[in-house]
Amino acid sequence: MAYVVGALFAAAIYMMLRRSIVKLVIGLMLLTNAANLLVFVVAGMTRGAPPLIAEGASVPGALVADPLPQALILTAIVIAFGVLAFSVVLIHRAYEVVGTDDLDQMKDTDT
């Protein structure tokens, strides 16, 4: 899984280095997924032991997956969606106003 995370990071950064603003956004999405996976992998992966507690019991079984990183990732997923929605609409507006999707041509403040 570590290699997968690494590969996703590489792909994300490659996309973020492109000049097209659309690719930048796709890179951003890749990066959020990669980052979520990173946290998930680093926290240790457990098979078939979700952090749920059986009815009537006060503590779960002997071994469950770590709930804390899951809570963090859950937050991150939702926030990432917010960021994505905002940035997608933002670049759409920017494209309408500026008339280009090339970042290198957006370098002046007064276009």
Binding site: M1, A2, Y3, V5, G6, A7, L8, F9, A10, A11, A12, I13, Y14, L17, A34, L38, V41, V42, G44
Partner: peptide
């Protein structure tokens, strides 16, 4: 090259952190 380098570092990092 830059991206692959970053990816490699992340991989190593994850491997170490586990």
């Amino acid at each position: 090259v830059v991206a692959l380098f970053a990816g490699a570092v992340v991989t190593l990092l994850v491997l170490a952190v586990i």
